[in-house]
């Protein structure tokens, strides 16, 4: 589903190479995890895939079902089925959460040539999906992420994911700032969305999230490259020994 080949990325404003040849292949229905120390390029990878400004791709490609993502606008990538759950969800004062969700759902439907969702149908679906994430009516009415706690913001990301039904989901440090209960709730939300046609790329520092969202494949990223790939046991290895051994092995 997602094919990343030899991806090289530098910062637009300065001569700093961040990704130095990333190769990654995620099949339909698979859950991959990327772990790695701070500054290894994990978040940059998620931003570049979703189309954030400030980065320049100097080499390589990233395709979703054969379509080149890197040439698309962010909204086109979203309509093509890509979703990024932000590490730091953005607060948007003045825009109601419900308005935001409905605008996004219908914009994507329109871009795909599908019929827009009626207000009534939308309301029914959003209430049902919000309930499983313990998001109450009040949170839906409030401006997007404004005054939300860390946990509420992350749950709101997962609600957006549930409403937009993307095929390729990237979770950027979704566990950061979450207590144990919130992590469980968010993970349940993610697991409920796992299906044959939907793939996940879970970016995290810690193994504990992977106890809840069980990956098929674990990659270790360091210094702008994927240095090791293995099964779930690789995450446990990192948890026990840290990254030092792995980095030494590569060097």
């Amino acid at each position: 589903m997602l094919e990343i080949k030899n991806l090289h990325v530098k910062l637009e404003e300065e001569e700093k190479q961040i990704l130095k040849g990333v190769n990654l292949s995620i099949g339909a229905g698979e859950v991959h995890a990327i772990m790695g120390p701070n500054g290894s390029g994990k978040s940059t990878l998620s931003y570049v895939l979703s189309g954030r400004d400030g980065y320049e791709v100097t080499e390589g490609s990233a395709t979703l079902d054969g379509q080149e993502l890197l040439e698309m606008e962010p909204e086109e990538r979203a309509a093509a089925g890509l979703f990024l759950a932000f590490q730091y969800p953005v607060e948007i004062p003045g825009v109601g959460n419900m308005t935001f969700l409905r605008t996004a759902v219908n914009a994507q439907r329109k871009a795909r040539g599908e019929e827009e969702m009626s207000a009534g149908e939308f309301l029914k679906v959003v209430r049902e999906r919000a309930k499983t994430l313990k998001i109450d009516a009040e949170m839906l009415k409030r401006p997007v992420n404004v005054g939300f706690s860390g946990g509420e913001k992350k749950r709101n990301e997962i609600l957006q994911m549930a409403m937009l039904e993307p095929r390729m989901c990237i979770l950027d440090e979704t566990d950061s700032g979450l207590d144990v209960d919130a992590m469980k709730l968010v993970s349940e939300g993610v697991n409920a969305l796992r299906s044959e046609g939907r793939s996940f790329l879970v970016i995290t520092h810690y193994q504990r999230l992977l106890d809840h969202i069980k990956p098929d494949v674990v990659h270790i990223m360091a210094n702008g490259r994927i240095i090791k790939t293995g099964g779930p046991e690789l995450a446990l290895e990192v948890e026990h020994n840290g990254y030092a051994d792995l980095l030494a092995e590569v060097n």
């Binding site: 962010p74 953005v90 914009a107």
Partner: peptide, 18 residues
């Protein structure tokens, strides 16, 4: 905020309008 809206599929002009 503009990028956040666009990443959810809202086209740039509509996002700016919002």
């Amino acid at each position: 905020a503009l990028f956040y809206l666009r990443s959810r599929g809202v086209p740039e002009r509509a996002a700016q309008g919002l």
